[in-house]
Every structure is written in structure tokens, then in C-alpha cells.
Simulated scan of single mutants.
Amino acid sequence: MENENTGKSVVLSLPAAEAFSHQVDLLLHRVKMPRHQVDKFADLLADTTRVLREKWPECKLVPFGSVPMGLATIYSDIDYHVYLPDYVTTTPHNRVLTGFKLLKQHPEMFDNVKTILNASVPVITFRHKATKLYSDLIFNDFAGEKETYLVKYILSFDHRLYPVLIIVKFWSKIHKLNTNGMTNFAWILMVTFYFQQANILPPILKLQVPHKKLFIDNWNVAYEKKYEDLYYNGNPDSVYQLLGKFFTYFSKFDFENYVISTFTASSYKKEIFRNLERVPELLELYKFNVKNNITEALSLETLCIPHPLIHNKNACSKILRSHAMKIIKYIQKAARLFREVGENNYLSAILTMSVEN
């Protein structure tokens, strides 16, 4: 309820008579996670590490997700990957249960401790009582850290990407769209994909070079960090235009039948992924891994948005079909408002819109 009221107060504070760019600046100021809140994560990290080391003395917690990406908002929790020494051979499922028990043994430090074992990656969620901050712990998603810093690097390519991402994240939050299997990372990938279509961002594969590879679980998670010096885009669109065109692009996208790939900056028919021989050569590592039973095949839900470096991992793998249909309706409504309302009214219009079920 607190977050919901905060969202409403932010929307009501947007001055309709002001220019769109000024409204965006105000929105970013209101929803961006403040520095003092970021600093509190150090206390959360210290207490969590100390408790987990009761069982695993050499464990290390590494942050990933929106906070290290630089995309944290007032709603964000912080995600940590728990690195355990090689001699720990228990399954990820058992590690989550063990971590859950450790945190539950310290009610003076943590509450709301829960496990989500049926997620694509099993997770522990909890609240740190001293800071009142929430956190997630995972134990077996090593590539998540690499993808976090890939997104952070991509943000440096163009100054317009950050405000569009924050607006879309906030829009999805206040309309309760980032639930039921729809992740913030999926929204980040959708915005990235549109910016690729607008010739602002390159395909992720362009950041990988043959002589520099780093394999985790047989996925190449390496990328070159000098590419932005070579990449020029002449797209003159403003943040307002890019935001509206983002919604317009996806309002017409055939989610039912197509997969979105930020790795190749292309979309593919889902039926292609049902026959490995038809999968494009640009996704040869995916073909190899699935063919040799190294990884499972991509799950082809209503919304199918593979991770940029781990191509068999759908960022929407747990989404409910009914919720996917709701998301599409909201996107279509935001696209229609882009055509119907003026620039200075657009931000408040999409943030206060509603859609009939």
C-alpha cells in the first residue's frame, strides 16, 4: 500500500502545463532510489553474509539486478548471488532451503523470510529489519551477474535509454504489470530491443569477439567494452518520441508467434525453435547446447524474451497467459494515447490510464 500511494503521489505531482522533458526530470527525481537508501544495503549485506557464514564460512555475496545496473527505483529490492566454495556439492534447491533455515534462526535481524522454489531460479526473499529493506538470494544463476553489468554497459551507449527504461519500469509498476511472471528484466530487454530496431543500440552479438570468450555453463558471457567508440547512431528522436514509438512498436508485435532476441536484434517465429535444424546459425551455441543436452530448450510462453547471453532462458518463463494478454492491452492503450494526446499530456496520461478486462 505504501508503494501504491507513493506512485499515486508521484503521478499527481507531474505539472501538466510543463514541458514533457521537465516532467521526466521530476519523475526521475521522485522515483530514483536515493543515495542514503543505497548506502543502507551495506548493513544488509554485512548481516546476511555473517549469518550465511555460520554454515558456509567462505561464501561471498555479489549483487546483481537493478541496483548495480544503475536502474534502482524507490521500489527496488537488492538481489545477491551467493557464491559457495567448490567443495559444496548440494543441489541449488537444498542450498536455498539451508539458507532459508539460517535466516529464520535470526528473527532479530530478518523477517518475511520466504522461499520460491518453483521459480525459474529458486530464490530466498526476506526483509532486513534494521534497514527495512528487502532482498533476494539465489545460489545457481552465475550468469545473472554478467548480464547485470552488460546492461549497465549498454546504458552508456545513449543518454535517452535510461529515462525511457525508468519510465517503462514505473509505468509497469503502478499498473501492476510486473507480476505473475513478468519481470523487470523482461521490460529492460524489450526497451533494449526497440532501441536496436531504432538503430540506437547494436545487437549484443556485435559486442562479442572471437578471440575473447568466457564460458559459464557453456554460455559465452564475455563482451567487448570498447564498442561504443565505434558505434554511431543518427537517430534524432527525443525521449518522448522513443517512449511513444516503443509502445507503438510492441502494440503491433505478434507476441503469440514470435520470439524477441536482443542478442541478434531480430525476432523469430516460435515454430523455428521447435526444430533445432531451423534455428539460425547466429544462435549456434543455443543449437549446440540443446542438441547435446547441456541445457534445456527455450520455453515458448505467450511472451518469449530470451536473456541476451543465455539464449535458452526466457525472462518471462513463468508468465500467466491471462497476464500476458493484460500487458498487451496496456501497451496498446499507451500506443493509442501517443497518437491522441499532446506531448505535455502524454506522461500523466499513460500513468493514469486504465484498461478494461
Rank of each mutant, 00 (worst) to 15 (best):
162 Y>E: 08
162 Y>I: 07
162 Y>P: 03
162 Y>G: 04
163 P>M: 05
163 P>W: 01
163 P>I: 04
163 P>E: 05
163 P>Q: 04
164 V>T: 07
164 V>I: 11
164 V>K: 01
165 L>N: 06
165 L>T: 06
165 L>R: 04
165 L>Y: 04
165 L>Q: 08
166 I>F: 02
166 I>R: 02
167 I>T: 03
167 I>M: 05
167 I>P: 01
167 I>C: 05
168 V>C: 09
168 V>R: 02
168 V>H: 03
169 K>R: 12
169 K>Q: 11
170 F>Q: 07
170 F>T: 10
170 F>M: 09
170 F>P: 02
171 W>V: 07
171 W>Y: 08
171 W>M: 09
172 S>E: 10
172 S>Q: 10
173 K>G: 09
173 K>F: 11
173 K>N: 13
174 I>G: 03
174 I>F: 07
174 I>S: 04
175 H>M: 11
175 H>L: 10
176 K>C: 15
176 K>E: 14
176 K>N: 13
178 N>E: 10
178 N>R: 11
178 N>H: 09
180 N>T: 14
180 N>L: 14
180 N>D: 14
182 M>H: 06
182 M>T: 09
182 M>Y: 07
182 M>I: 12
182 M>G: 08
182 M>C: 12
182 M>V: 13
183 T>Q: 10
183 T>L: 09
183 T>W: 05
184 N>G: 15
184 N>Q: 12
185 F>W: 09
185 F>G: 03
185 F>H: 07
185 F>N: 05
186 A>T: 11
186 A>W: 05
187 W>K: 12
187 W>A: 13
187 W>H: 13
187 W>P: 07
187 W>C: 10
188 I>H: 09
188 I>M: 14
189 L>C: 14
189 L>W: 08
189 L>I: 11
191 V>K: 06
191 V>G: 08
192 T>P: 07
192 T>N: 12
192 T>Y: 10
192 T>A: 13
192 T>S: 11
193 F>R: 04
193 F>Y: 12
193 F>L: 08
193 F>W: 07
195 F>E: 02
195 F>D: 01
195 F>M: 07
196 Q>F: 00
196 Q>L: 02
196 Q>A: 02
197 Q>H: 08
197 Q>M: 09
197 Q>A: 07
197 Q>L: 06
198 A>M: 05
198 A>D: 04
198 A>Q: 06
199 N>A: 12
199 N>R: 15
200 I>G: 01
200 I>Q: 01
200 I>D: 01
200 I>T: 02
201 L>P: 00
202 P>H: 01
202 P>Q: 01
202 P>E: 01
202 P>F: 00
202 P>T: 01
204 I>W: 00
204 I>H: 00
205 L>D: 05
206 K>I: 04
206 K>L: 09
207 L>C: 02
207 L>V: 01
208 Q>N: 06
208 Q>G: 03
208 Q>H: 04
208 Q>C: 06
209 V>F: 00
209 V>A: 03
209 V>L: 04
210 P>Y: 00
210 P>A: 03
210 P>T: 02
211 H>I: 15
211 H>D: 15
211 H>A: 14
211 H>C: 15
211 H>V: 15
211 H>E: 15
212 K>L: 14
212 K>P: 08
212 K>S: 15
212 K>C: 15
213 K>T: 14
213 K>V: 12
